[in-house]
């Protein structure tokens, strides 16, 4: 009886995992080993070409050669995601720190303000940045009006614009976990540090930061993963002149009509992210172990 109750208890969770995770993943996995259909879809013939295609590609003349196109695209995406993490951290940590310092009633208001941008569709918010950044946009009109510059400064369709767009989109994901870590922080530890004549900077470095690190790690992961697959900001703010992993996958399921390759790309990206997360987790556990001794 006890056992039966136990099993019915885990049913919803099992259902979630099987229907929303395992089943789609299996489909992607199987598709990645099939042959592309003529007009999209797949033919049920086994092939590993989707995977070899990642590094070895046919050129226009059907000669197979080592090709770094996809590696270049992957590294570009990783680079952009890293910039997004660093930028969000630089903005998000001080913001979270400030909020955590406020009296409790005020904290909730500030947290609410952090989440307000989510009430508006991401596409619309990104479009607004176009209006702000473009040659005939708010900033350039203002600068030209004030006589600071004659020619508009090129801001839209640059890599800087992509970074700005990503930081803007994902910074709340950085603020919230860091805030959660800082809020739990035992204030007496900071007082103890000050009592021992540590100045603000030393306290921050040796007490606050290490205690906030779980929040920082969680925030970084939450920013890095979606930023890796982002394509709205690169397309709209970067001008779509260089492919990102997200747009590359999307392209395979539309114009390129190569579903197996799209699936293979997805599998590789997912495995890479998973390996990084595992390394993080192992590292984290080892650190915690060290702390207790």
């Amino acid at each position: 009886m006890e056992r039966l109750r136990h099993y019915t208890g885990v049913l919803p969770a099992t259902f979630m995992i099987v229907v929303f995770m395992l089943a789609p993943l299996t489909i992607i996995f199987v598709y990645s080993f099939l042959t592309p259909g003529d007009y999209g879809g797949v033919k049920f013939e086994f092939s590993t070409e989707a995977y070899t295609q990642l590094l070895f590609q046919k050129n226009l003349f059907d000669e197979v050669e080592f090709d770094t196109s996809y590696l270049t695209i992957a590294f570009r995406s990783i680079w952009v995601a890293t910039v997004a993490v660093v930028g969000s951290l630089a903005l998000g940590f001080p913001a979270a720190y400030y909020i955590a310092q406020q009296p409790e009633s005020r904290r909730n208001t500030l947290l609410l303000l952090i989440t307000i941008p989510f009430w508006t569709n991401l596409l619309i918010r990104t479009y607004c940045w176009i209006l702000v950044l473009r040659d005939t946009g708010l900033i350039n009109n203002l600068l030209i009006g004030l006589g600071v510059t004659d020619e508009p400064i090129k801001m839209l369709y640059t890599e800087g614009a992509i970074a700005l767009g990503l930081v803007y989109t994902y910074v709340p994901f950085m603020v919230l976990p860091i805030y959660a870590a800082l809020e739990r922080l035992d204030k007496r530890l900071i007082e103890a540090s000050r009592d021992l004549y540590a100045n603000r900077w030393t306290t921050l470095r040796h007490v606050t930061l290490p205690l906030a690190s779980p929040g920082i790690v969680a925030g970084s992961i939450l920013v890095f993963i979606p930023a890796l697959g982002a394509f709205i900001a690169p397309d709209l703010l970067g001008g779509g002149k260089k492919l990102m992993l997200g747009s590359l996958v999307q392209l395979q399921f539309s114009a390129a009509r190569d579903w197996p390759f799209g699936s293979a790309l997805t599998m590789v990206i997912m495995s890479a992210v998973l390996i990084c997360l595992l390394l993080f987790a192992v590292n984290q556990r080892r650190n915690e172990g060290g702390f207790q001794h």
């Binding site: 002149k241 492919l243 009509r257």
Partner: peptide
């Protein structure tokens, strides 16, 4: 066409 496009935007 697809190879041209990837080569253009890589």
């Amino acid at each position: 066409q697809n190879r041209v496009w990837t080569a253009l935007l890589k």
